[in-house]
């Protein structure tokens, strides 16, 4: 029993963090809203090997797992990275691995090399769908491999301008390539990615609000010295700090095929998204009227957090999964079953 990351995992996280924080500034994110995707940015992520982190070594990747990537996903959240990197590493690649066969052998090397983007759509739309070379789309509980050129994609403006959402219509003759188990696993990994990014987003909002309330003065004092403001921020800090462990626990369970991994994912998704939701609510309040403006960056991170709360299974879905597990007699809930 050892609930901690390795030195290597931390060093990898640190180098990715440094890259993201210097490159993905809020100005850059706003620029991408205007310009659309920047191929140079995606190339940089490919050069760092990030699209191949979870691709097996025999297919040109780094052969790492969900636990290695979860810390990176957190950092992607911190900068609200508007690129499908978390989706690639945590959803598309593991799904291709599970499908296996020729599809995996064909596409995994291309994903690792940055020559192709493969995206999974379970919710009736796909983020960045127009950039993909292969779409894996759910219909009727089964997954279909769809050539984007043979499908009809329609762009939708999103409340979170960092998300480029496409609804897809595809030929009903497309053959199913995987069933409900693979669909469920894809949803769980997507939920883990959303949870990890939510941790980063919440941290970013806390950092902004702490900085702002330390500067902004009223009644001759920084507003951050007032207990009413402090208590708002302390509540977020507690919720955020305590949401990390369940996210890491879920990552470990997915990476190690724990039989209760889905339950652990639901715990993680709920804990992290609730932390980010509370961060958004309290940090905009701490910013006062400025937090409501387009000019102040806070909304970049709030909107991403709100969007992720509904992605890959919303609160109702995950809470139902937890309560069903608790009330079905098969789940041991007693003292010996805590880990």
């Amino acid at each position: 029993m050892h609930f901690d990351f390795t030195e290597d995992q931390r060093l990898f996280r640190d180098s990715v963090r440094n890259f993201l924080r210097s490159e993905i500034t809020s100005e850059r994110v706003r620029g991408l809203w205007e310009s659309g995707p920047d191929t140079a940015l995606w190339s940089q992520l490919v050069e760092l090997g990030l699209t191949g982190v979870t691709v097996p070594e025999e297919h040109g990747g780094l052969g790492m797992d969900e636990l290695d990537f979860v810390l990176l996903a957190e950092q992607c959240g911190y900068v609200a990275l508007p690129e499908p990197l978390v989706h690639t590493a945590l959803v598309a690649v593991p799904t291709l691995k599970e499908i296996g066969g020729g599809l995996a052998a064909t596409w995994l090397p291309r994903v690792a090399a940055g020559d192709a983007l493969v995206l999974v759509g379970l919710a009736g739309w796909v983020e960045d769908g127009d950039r993909a070379q292969l779409l894996l789309l759910e219909r009727g509980g089964e997954l279909h491999a769809v050539d984007p050129d043979a499908a009809e994609l329609r762009a939708n403006a999103s409340v979170d301008p960092s998300r480029r959402l496409f609804t897809v219509r595809f030929n009903s003759a497309a053959e199913a390539i995987a069933g409900t188990a693979v669909v469920g696993a894809a949803r769980d990994r997507g939920a883990l990615g959303a949870a990890a990014q939510s941790l980063g987003l919440a941290q970013r909002m806390v950092d902004m609000a702490v900085a702002y309330t330390g500067e902004r003065k009223q009644f001759g004092k920084p507003v951050g010295s007032f207990q009413a403001v402090k208590h708002h921020m302390a509540n977020v800090a507690v919720r955020l700090e305590y949401a990390r462990a369940p996210v890491y626990r879920a990552a470990w369970s997915l990476a190690n095929g724990h039989p209760r991994a889905a339950l652990h994912v639901s715990q993680a998704k709920l804990a992290a998204c609730e932390a980010a939701a509370l961060a958004a609510k309290n940090c905009i309040q701490a910013h006062g009227a400025m937090g409501y403006t387009w000019e102040v960056d806070l909304h970049i991170y709030m909107k991403k957090a709100w969007a992720l709360a509904g992605a890959w299974g919303d609160t109702g879905f995950h809470k139902q999964r937890v309560s069903d597990a608790l009330f079905e007699d098969k789940l041991p809930i007693g003292a010996g079953a805590t880990f």
Partner: peptide
């Protein structure tokens, strides 16, 4: 506890 967390963990200005 909230005062302590805000001041010592978040380094918010002391009252």
């Amino acid at each position: 506890q909230r005062n302590i967390i805000a001041e010592r963990a978040l380094n918010m200005p002391r009252e």
